[in-house]
Design a protein around this nucleic acid. Structure first.
Lengths: 143, 143
DNA sequence: GTGTTTGCAAATATTTTGCAGTAAG
DNA sequence: CTTACTGCAAAATATTTGCAAACAC
């Protein structure tokens, strides 16, 4: 699976290549922090002073449709986004609200089991695990 | 694990027992449809003409704190609620948006693996599987 | 009676939409 | 030059909060 760059993909699909779109996708590719729309907007508005939230929302919509980002809901009031679109579980810290990827796993068996037991035709999955991250675990105070 | 009724639990925890609270919890216990706040409100407002959305929200907050309902986010704009608080995966139909429980599974091994691989101290999990339900699968039209 | 709860309305937060000006191709 | 895109502001949604009247105990 060769990774094409965003410009190429946008052109192929008939979308225009704009600096905003490149910046938003570039930011998502370069972080592991699973930012929300607001976090993306705030991290870009210094370099793109006219950037608007609406543009971030619209760009994320396109990226979702192109399957270049996946949307996460870890239980907060807003969504978070991940440019790692390979199916993988996420772990969320109850205390510091960090969201980490778990890339080292495969769960073909699990999916197969759910497929059989549920009688659904399973196409995708979102797996969230909640607990305490390495930095927060063992400490008594709970936020 | 004996199931106590809501009146008993509310009294024990110092909450007052009100008809609204009993109705909301009763409704959740008696359905497998994983309703949203709005669905709960609409199904109760005929019997409780003065019921308000704010009361449903406040009651659900209490039920969450008492661990009597779990909150689901299956990717819609609003949450859904499940009075089955035992950890279990949910399967969601892409086409008819039905949400079903998968009760016949245990995934101790999976949790153990995530625990080890992520170095988090995992306390709970939310597992969502997306696809086509028995009624919708095999049919070509995708909503 | 006292203190909590209800339920209205207003406030907040997030996301979506309309549209005129702007930029990409 | 044509069409899609940006970004402002307004609208739509979902949820939370303030508070007076009503209810639980």
């Amino acid at each position: 699976m060769v990774k094409e760059d965003l410009s190429t993909i946008l052109k192929e699909k008939g979308f225009k290549v704009t600096p905003q779109r490149l910046a938003i996708y570039g930011m998502l590719k370069s972080t592991k922090s699973h930012p929300s729309i607001d976090m993306i907007y705030n991290s870009l508005k210094d370099d793109f002073p006219t950037m608007s939230l609406a543009t971030v929302y619209k760009t994320i919509d396109i990226l979702k449709k192109l399957n270049l980002v996946q949307e996460l809901n870890v239980g907060e009031g807003s969504f978070r986004y991940d440019a790692n679109v390979a199916p993988h579980p996420h772990v969320i810290c109850y205390k510091c609200h960090r969201v980490d990827d778990v890339d080292e796993m495969n769960f073909e068996e699990l999916i197969e089991k759910v497929n059989k037991v549920s009688d659904y035709d399973i196409k995708s999955q979102k797996l969230y695990f909640y607990g305490y991250c390495p930095q927060c675990k063992g400490k008594d105070t709970v936020s």
